[in-house]
Amino acid sequence: MTAPQPSGPDTHGVAVDAYTAAQAAQDAAVGHETRTFKLWRGADGKGDFQDFTTETNDGMVVLDAIHQIQAEQCNDLAVRWNCKAGKCGSCSAEINGKPKLMCMTRLDELPANEPVTVEPMRAFPHVRDLVTDVSWNFRVKPRIQKFTPRPPDAPDGTWRIQQADVERVQEFRKCIECFLCQDVCHVLRDHHKHEEFIGPRFLVYAAALEMHPLDVAERTTALKDDFGIGYCNITKCCTKVCPEHITITDNAIIPLKERVVDEHFDPLRALVRLVRGPKRK
């Protein structure tokens, strides 16, 4: 579809009208639609759904609609967002009951004949409306043994590593810390084991360190005793919600579980260690 071009100064008014008409036609063509949104309103865990109706069109994402509602109908609606590009991990919420990024969920992916429900994440303390307090995650991270490289390979204090060896952990570096995996994990969400279990996000973080070709620290004992890796029952919900498509369960959690089995549950491995001495990384 091509919009008519202004034809010259004498017909300026006519051209603008034609342009406006073309714009209106284009807007109609992209599918304007009125949709209902049920947004969670309230503070400190108390609240209820409130209905809003707004105009939407093709290509809009949930965050666009939330901003439109905030601008036109509900100025005090609290919502956390930043990049609108699926890279900052700020706008995590539960859309139609599923943990998702609001900025990456297109409205045309959602059933058109039903209201769109948007709730705050359930695994973290509620602050207000769609905003939760995710600071627990920031307190977990420092508990994990930091990157501990082996002594430098060269006299100038640098290391030599092969690309093939770092490829495995590069997948984990894609994490944007949206905490959707933490939110969907039933150990945190339903059983509230925040004191005993660090959750999928930090198991990925631990895997990135533990499998790094330069790292020599031992984390399996902490994973078993302090970080509760045994609580994970491999339902793969974390993998399903990850917006960066990190294969959290198969590539991070299960390999870590296997390393914990090596160190703590496998009698044959214990025998090998007894004969050969402790494993050198």
Binding site: K98, H186, V187, C232, K240, V241
Partner: peptide
């Protein structure tokens, strides 16, 4: 992962509430 969900509802599905409060996992 499959039979924990299908047979023991632990959890029944992703982001679906659970029928029990206690949980020991594989720990």
């Amino acid at each position: 992962g499959t039979y924990y969900k299908a047979f023991w509802a632990d959890p029944p599905g992703c982001a679906v509430g659970e029928p029990r409060n206690s949980y020991l996992g594989e720990k």
